[in-house]
Design a protein around this nucleic acid. Structure first.
Lengths: 139, 139
DNA sequence: GTTACTGCAAAGCTTTTGCATCCCT
DNA sequence: AGGGATGCAAAAGCTTTGCAGTAAC
């Protein structure tokens, strides 16, 4: 266990940001997290270990990590921003009933007909698939 | 011109909602609008003609229209909700520099490999293409 | 020793709500 | 006439900001 922590500190040091206990707790929580948590989710979870953790610090840290490209911000939820530690291009599958969001790691080669490109130089894409999960369907 | 207004009132009456001057002004403004306006945008625009228009009324009307399926809500902009009078499935092309949003009306046949579907029944999808528009590129 | 992060509180935005009044249908 | 829409103001989120104190480098 101790060695895991050491490995992680090394990894987190590689982000280049100044490491504080608060930031380590945030990095530890979001690392590999597949729940697309909001700032409030992160604050709530991390507060259990570090009760002093302030929500403002969470927001400021997320902003820093986003600018350095270590996390990405999702505009999937109209009510609040969600964050994703996976910065590789990927897509999302959303249950329209329970709102859960699942990663889709498949490569989808998408292209727009030239005549619709309006002179844009396309740099990326993101697909949201909508559907009903099996749990919601069985109700 | 007068006949156009009559035609439009007929069309708007078909929405089934109770028509008030405020609602007509909102419907007229968003009808065919390609700017994906926010509630504030709509309020600002409509206020020029109807200074009494309240922002709360705009929100309530948009909520009503959304529930009846006459407009759709976009989660593209993390700062505020935007609305789209086009409820047919379509996609969006977003300039990462100036943030303008353009409709892409093309049919894109997208599918997820079964093994990644997690038991979901897929009902729809929405693609965001990112790029740089020609105006931004020439700077 | 500097630089910059933290926590708090306040402020800023967007969106929602309660309620009395008013107006479509 | 009745039900629902309007406008106002207040409240309720979510997110940002300023600042004094403190910790990482």
């Amino acid at each position: 266990m101790k060695s895991t922590i050491i490995v992680n500190i090394k990894k987190y040091r590689a982000t280049g940001i100044k490491l504080t206990p608060q930031r380590l707790a945030i990095l530890e929580y979001i690392d590999g997290n597949k729940n697309h948590p909001s700032a409030e989710n992160i604050h709530e979870a991390v507060s259990r270990k570090y009760p002093m953790m302030s929500l403002a610090t969470v927001y400021k840290t997320l902003e820093t990590l986003k600018h350095r490209g270590h996390i990405s911000e999702l505009s999937i939820d109209p009510k609040r921003r969600r964050y994703d530690p996976d910065t590789k291009p990927h897509h999302h599958l959303i249950c329209i009933t329970c709102k859960q969001i699942i990663d889709i790691e498949a490569e989808l080669s998408l292209s727009i007909p030239d005549e619709l490109k309006e002179g844009f130089e396309i740099t990326g894409n993101h697909v949201e698939f909508y559907g009903i999960c099996s749990k919601c369907r069985s109700r």
